[in-house]
């Protein structure tokens, strides 16, 4: 579904991502794992179109993504839930969700989608008239994911969904991600929390200071003690 081949991401002269190739198949949860500054966010930004100086091939459903602008990629079915939620602080929860359905395609069916999202996140319905900045961290993350889903995405890019959340909430978020995935939405996830990502994803890629170190599936990991030790603290 999404194919990146030899992708470089540049900020001015600084290269945040070097020669990374990844492949996401329809219906998968794929995780990008790596520490702070490994280039995970930059890679997601390259896919969503927020970073404009990107070299290499970006293919989404057999189309060259590079000819699409950021807002056009949303129409094509890619939505990026950014790191730190980034809700619109002075819009209500309801308005935030409506902003998610901004693209023309999603707008016409926004009422039905909204009902569905309130089913997944009943808390959001309770708080729908509250301004977004007054939500708690967990509620904000739900609102951000819900807002992303409002665009009826095919591919959901999630940047650090567990950041700053209490452990029980982290589990809740990952359970939700899994549930969303079951609905048929493909997910590309960037996470520092490698244990959780390992548990919930089908495959993962490891990034280190902009370079791709390794591609693994759960099964192949069992045989790779080095990786296990270095990134997951498993002996």
């Amino acid at each position: 579904m999404l194919k990146l081949k030899n992708v470089d991401v540049l900020y001015g002269k600084f290269m945040a991502v070097k020669q990374v190739s990844i492949n996401v198949k329809k219906g998968e949860i794929v995780a990008l794992i790596g520490s702070n500054g490994a280039g995970k966010s930059s890679l997601l930004k390259a896919v969503s179109g927020l970073c404009s100086s990107v070299k290499g091939e970006l293919i989404f459903e057999d189309q060259d993504l590079k000819s699409y602008k950021c807002h056009d990629r949303v129409c094509e079915g890619i939505i990026h839930v950014p790191e730190g939620r980034k809700l619109f602080p002075r819009l209500t929860v309801m308005e935030n969700l409506q902003m998610g359905a901004y693209s023309k395609k999603a707008r016409s069916s926004s009422k039905e989608t909204l009902a569905k999202i309130f089913q997944i996140f009943p808390r959001l319905e309770e708080r729908k008239n509250q301004l977004a900045y007054s939500l708690s961290g967990g509620e904000q993350q739900m609102c951000a994911i819900g807002r992303g889903l409002m665009s009826l995405p095919k591919l959901l890019l999630l940047d650090e969904p567990s950041l700053g959340l209490a452990p029980n909430l982290v589990k809740l978020v990952f359970d939700t991600v899994k549930a969303i995935n079951k609905e048929g939405i493909t997910i590309l996830l960037a996470e520092q929390n490698s244990t959780m990502s390992l548990k919930y994803s089908d495959r993962f890629y490891i990034l280190e200071s902009g370079n791709m170190v390794n591609e693994q599936s759960k099964d192949s990991l069992a045989s790779d003690a080095d990786i296990k030790k270095k990134y997951f603290g498993l002996a």
Partner: peptide, 14 residues
């Protein structure tokens, strides 16, 4: 209003 509060995220919303 969304753009005035956070132009980057507004872009991400399409």
């Amino acid at each position: 209003r969304a753009t005035s509060q956070d132009r980057t995220t507004a872009q991400l919303m399409g």
